[in-house]
Structure formats: structure tokens, C-alpha cells
Design a protein around this nucleic acid. Structure first.
Length: 585
RNA sequence: GCUGUUGUAGCUCAGUCGGCAGAGCACUUCCUUGGUAAGGAAGAGGUCGGCAGUUCGAAUCUGCUCAACAGCUCCA
């Protein structure tokens, strides 16, 4: 993207103009199509159309050709504005534009851009003439709801991208192809980290030995670190009676997302847990607590179940059963800031260790005051807690953006967001302030003055859910995990059968140090074994033949450093052990 | 859930007009015993995603369904 040279006015104007050219072409080819909206995005542009029949990839080719003609015509873009009545008259055949005009504030200027016989309601800015757009590509056509609401009609959205020259376009398309090669959903299967089965179902991945190994390493790392930071591990049930969720509010506010067993007529209805909070709360409730006991930090490696809609699943990123590095902190108001900071510190520590710290962004997820039925609790309290949270975030010096309507139903969140190879943003880690559930569950503590009070509860994760984190690590490292995470750290490769015994002794020496390895004793040439180990992105290959056997060495080939030559076995073990211990990247 | 695309061997993919199910890699066996990204030969491997329908005959046409992919909505 950096390579592209854009017309003055920025790439947004450039792309926005391209979207007008596309809409112009669509109108010429399909006059009955109604125009919705067509903005520039961070990575290109799109336009939404209301069409009688869905558009196909064939249509996109036709539209691209028509765009070429329009660009050749060298039309100028002219801006003009109209009084409301005339604007409505001009757009009388465009119901979506009329809806937009009617919603503009009274005093707002209603502006249009015109290029030849094509006019669009638009605030601009735009390029001066369409011929500035030298290279473009329509990438995909998909459905998109009018105004982003599933209650509205589904429109046809065409995505595209454009540049000032063909070279930049080619480079961009190549970069998109390269990104796809890192796609965890493809790479993760190729590297035998996970698979899926249509007999098991959507959103229910099978973690293969290698994928399960990576997650085991991560899990041990998380649990050890959390123990060090004063957490106490719980293991709570994966299902509960509906009674529990009725108290927590999940029954009313999260029911669509839950797997419920049985129906209302049954004496007892059970549901798989979508969250761990009410379960860990039961642990707190086993006895009376003094303010002196707080904060109490519970953690759990918690498998959760959420009934995602069928179209929402994606690889290991959105699934129906996943395991969260979960935890809840019960604390006093005075401890809230300190505990919150502790959660952020832990999350940042995890991200830094994994090498993901530079790839995340922070989102302060607030409630939507206009959509109160989605949340529980008092509006004033919401505002007050959100203000407290904003103060804490400001004290932390985090660069965050605020987002309305993204809060949990019981409180505001700090979401640590990350983008996948397709540019789609997902929450990796979340830290939430809950000022409501303690009261619902009657979780009290006795304060210094002898009165009973309700604590704050922090719902937090330290590195998110293991499956999603694994997915993003696959994409981050293109499958070439740092040695400490690699499912297979070393491949021992005897040159021929003569060296199998020595290879076995190397294997045993490494295994004794807890190093994960495979010993390739297949009847293949060394070049073949190396090629395969390279494709599997194994950090270290140890070639052993006559020379090595004689000297007690291994010929090391490092994924990162290339050929290192013959090294004494002990020296290699020391080298790799240090690398693993320091979690080097 | 919605819109679109796609499902043929473990993987990547051919398969024309409805007429015997194909290739490369991987796998097995044998030969080869080797020095840093594919040694050679032979063999085995298929409910053509599934279920119905049309037809003398379906991988191919139709319907339903399951799954995967991109997006929308939703979300860790």
C-alpha cells in the first residue's frame, strides 16, 4: 500500500471516486438497479446496490469493462448542491437516497457529485476527473444488509480497489495472495494442527496432536504465570441448571447464544456454559469474606459453548466450543484500578511474549444508551462505571478508541483487538468491569466498618481463547512458530540405516531434556528429509552421519540461521534449551 | 441466520454433449544406503459431500440437505 502514489485528497477520495465510477457502470448496464451507499474503506471501496437478481462474478467482469469506457471518456466530477425539495425530486427514483436525504439535518447542505449522466448524493470529496483512476479491480460480490441491520433488505455489495498505476495494483493483488498463504485455516490444516469433520459439526474443530501440543504449551505457560500473579485455579462444571443463568441474566440476555438441553416442560433444564462467571461465583459464595480477603483472583482454563449462527464460524477464530484463559477477580472499589491495571499488565505480558504486542489495538467497549434492553442495570451507574474505566485507561496511557454498543450486558470492556490475514478484526483478549452480578448473586464482603458491601468483579482473560490465539499465531508466524511453541522442535535425520543407532541416542538425549522431536528413520535420501522438514517449518534439523557419529556431534540446520555445521550434541542441547527457556522469537 | 461461490483419492486438481473414475504429490512394497529442498520401479487407494428425483443410463440435469470459503449480521 505504501508504494501507491495517490492523487491529492488522499486514497479515500481516490477510492470513493472509483466507487462512483463503478456505480456509474452498473447503472449503465442495469438501469433498474437502485443505489444505496458506496464509501471508501481502509483497504478499498464498495458500493451497495439493490438488484432484481444477484450479481455474479461474470457481472463483475462486465462492470469492469464498462468502467474502462467511463474512465476513457475522461469525465469531470462536478459538485453542486440543491434545496431539499429539489434534491428529493432529482432522486425520486432512488428510494435509498431519498431515505438518506430525509434523515439529513434541516440545516445540512445537500450535495451531489455529477460525472456525465451519473449523479450521486454525496458529501465528497472526490477526484477532479475519472481518468485519474488508472488501475482497478473488482474483488468480490457479497450480500450486505441495508444500513447494516438484518431486519432490512439484503443488498448486493461489490468490493474493489484501485490505484494510480497498474504496477501498484499488481503489487496489491500479490500481497493479498501472499496474505492468503498465511491463512491459519489453510496453513493450520496443512501443518496438521487441526481439522474438522462434517460428522462432528460446524465450529467444532479437532485439534490434532501438533495443534493440541501448542495449546498445551500455551496453557501451561498461562497457568504458571497466573499462579505467580496470585490467581487460584478452579475447575467448574461445563453445564448448569437454567436457574443459574436466570440469576446471572444470561437466560434473558444471552439465550440465543446458548446450547440448552431439554425444554421448559422438563423439571430441570440444563445448558452448556457460554461463560464461566456464575460458576466461579459459586466458589466465592461458599463462605463469608472480609475486605481483608480481597482481592480474590480465580482463574480457570475454561471450555465454553456458544451457539454461533451457522454463517459466523471461521476456522479456529469463531467456533462453537472453545477454551478460554478465563478468570474473575473479586475486589473492593479501592482495589479496582490496581486490579484492572494488573489484568492489562498480564495481557500485555502475554502478547509481548507471543510477539503479538505490535499487532493489537485497544477498544473501550461501552454500552448503547439507546438500546437499553440489551443491558441490565441502572443507566446512571453505567455512565459512572464507564467514566471510572475511562480514567483508569487514561492513567494507563493506553491508546484506545471508544465503541458504543460493544459492552457486555453486565458492564463495559477493554477489548484487545487483532486483525487476521483478511484484515478482519477480532477480540483476542477482554477485560471487563462488572458492577452488577455481585449483587445478583449476593456476593458480599464485610468492610472495615462492619457493613456488608458488594464488590466489583473483573471478568478477564490473559491471552484469550486458545484456539483463536493459536489461529493468530499461525498467521503471525506463517506456521513457523518460535522454538518454545513449535509442536516439533527438532527433527533428527540419519543419513542412512547405518546411523539409526546413533540417531536414536541423539533422540534419547534430547527427550531427556524435554525437547520435542521426531526421528526421521525412513528409507529416504537426506535431501528429501530436509525438504519435508523445511515444509513443516521445524526449527532445527539435525543431520547425523558417519562424521557426527564418530565425533559425538550433530550437523545443525536452523530454520532461522541456516546451516550451522557440526556442533557437539551437548552444546546444541544447551543452545536450544536456552532458546526455549527465554521464549526467544 | 442472510447473499454469493465451492465440494471428484489423504492433498492439489482434470473430467467435453448425460454413456467404463483420471493425473501429480502423499501412502504401501521392492530396488537403492545416500551428506543439506523431491533417486527408481511396482502396487494399493473412490458411497464423485449426503438424500431424493428425472432418465435405459447421473460425477454431469433438478430439488432438498450437510460442509467449506468470502462478505453481512453477531461475537471471545
Amino acid at each position: 500500500m505504501e508504494r501507491a502514489v495517490f492523487f491529492e485528497g488522499g486514497k479515500k477520495a481516490f477510492w470513493h471516486t472509483t466507487s462512483h465510477i463503478m456505480a456509474h457502470a452498473v447503472k449503465r448496464l442495469y438501469p433498474d438497479v437502485k443505489l444505496a451507499i458506496g464509501p471508501a474503506t481502509d483497504t478499498g471501496f464498495y458500493y451497495d446496490f439493490d438488484t432484481a437478481t444477484p450479481l455474479t462474478m461474470e457481472d463483475l467482469k462486465k462492470i469492469e469493462k464498462e468502467m474502462k469506457r467511463i474512465i476513457k471518456e475522461g469525465l469531470k466530477l462536478e459538485k453542486f448542491s440543491l434545496p431539499r425539495a429539489e434534491a428529493l425530486e432529482l432522486m425520486k427514483d432512488e428510494p435509498y437516497k431519498i431515505e438518506l436525504i430525509n434523515e439529513l439535518p434541516e440545516d445540512e447542505e445537500i450535495t451531489f457529485y455529477k460525472q456525465g449522466d451519473f449523479v450521486d448524493l454525496c458529501a465528497g470529496p472526490h477526484l477532479e476527473k475519472v481518468s485519474e483512476v488508472k488501475a482497478y479491480k473488482l474483488l468480490s460480490v457479497t450480500g450486505a444488509y441495508w444500513r447494516g441491520s438484518e431486519k432490512n433488505k439484503m443488498l448486493q455489495r461489490i468490493y474493489g480497489v484501485s490505484f494510480v498505476n497498474q504496477e501498484d495494483l499488481e503489487a496489491h493483488l500479490t500481497a493479498l495472495e501472499e496474505a492468503k498463504k498465511r491463512d491459519h485455516n489453510k496453513l493450520g490444516r496443512e501443518l496438521e494442527l487441526f481439522t474438522t469433520s462434517e460428522y462432528i459439526g460446524q465450529g467444532l474443530p479437532i485439534l490434532m496432536p501438533k495443534g493440541a501440543r501448542v495449546i498445551q504449551v500455551l496453557q501451561r505457560f498461562v497457568e504458571d504465570e497466573e499462579e505467580r500473579r496470585g490467581y487460584q485455579l478452579t475447575r467448574t462444571p461445563m453445564m448448569a441448571k437454567s436457574d443459574l443463568y436466570k440469576i446471572s441474566g444470561h437466560w434473558n440476555h444471552y439465550r440465543d447464544g446458548m446450547f440448552i438441553m431439554g425444554n421448559e416442560d422438563d423439571k430441570e433444564v440444563f445448558a452448556l456454559r457460554p461463560m464461566t462467571c456464575p460458576f466461579q461465583f459459586q466458589a466465592y459464595l461458599t463462605k463469608m469474606h472480609s475486605y481483608r480477603d480481597l482481592p480474590i483472583r480465580y482463574n480457570e482454563t475454561a471450555t465454553l459453548f456458544r451457539n454461533e449462527a451457522s454463517g459466523e464460524m471461521h476456522g479456529l477464530i469463531r467456533i462453537r466450543q472453545f477454551t478460554l484463559a478465563e478468570g474473575h477477580i473479586v475486589c473492593t472499589p479501592a482495589q479496582l484500578e490496581e486490579e484492572f491495571k494488573g489484568c492489562v499488565d498480564l495481557a500485555v505480558f502475554m502478547l509481548t511474549t507471543l510477539g503479538l504486542d505490535e499487532d493489537v489495538s485497544y477498544r473501550f467497549s461501552k454500552w448503547d444508551a439507546n438500546n437499553r434492553e440489551k443491558y441490565i442495570g441502572d443507566p446512571d451507574e453505567w455512565e459512572s462505571v464507564q467514566n471510572t474505566m475511562r480514567e483508569i485507561l487514561d492513567h494507563l496511557g493506553i491508546d484506545y478508541k471508544e465503541a458504543d454498543g460493544e459492552a457486555a450486558f453486565y458492564g463495559p470492556k477493554l477489548d484487545i483487538q487483532i486483525r487476521n490475514v483478511h484484515g478482519k478484526e477480532d477480540t483476542l483478549i477482554t477485560i471487563q468491569i462488572d458492577f452488577q452480578l455481585a449483587e445478583r448473586f449476593e456476593m458480599e464482603y464485610t468492610d472495615a466498618d462492619g457493613t456488608k458491601k458488594f464488590p466489583y468483579i473483573l471478568h478477564r482473560s490473559s491471552l484469550g481463547c486458545y484456539e483463536r490465539t493459536l489461529a493468530l499465531l499461525i498467521e503471525k508466524y506463517a506456521g513457523a512458530f518460535p522454538t518454545w511453541l513449535a509442536p516439533v522442535q527438532v527433527k533428527v535425520m540419519p543419513i542412512s540405516e547405518k546411523h539409526f543407532d546413533y540417531a536414536k541416542s541423539v533422540e534419547n538425549a534430547l527427550k531427556a531434556q524435554g525437547i520435542r522431536l521426531e526421528n526421521d528413520t525412513r528409507n529416504e535420501k537426506i535431501g528429501y528429509k530436509i525438504r519435508e522438514a523445511q515444509k513443516q517449518k521445524i526449527p532445527y534439523m539435525l543431520v547425523v552421519g558417519d562424521k557426527e557419529e564418530e565425533d559425538g556431534t550433530v550437523a545443525v540446520r536452523s530454520r532461522k540461521e541456516g546451516e550451522l555445521g557440526a556442533i557437539a550434541l551437548d552444546a546444541f542441547i544447551e543452545k536450544i534449551s536456552r532458546e526455549i527457556k527465554t521464549k526467544a522469537r
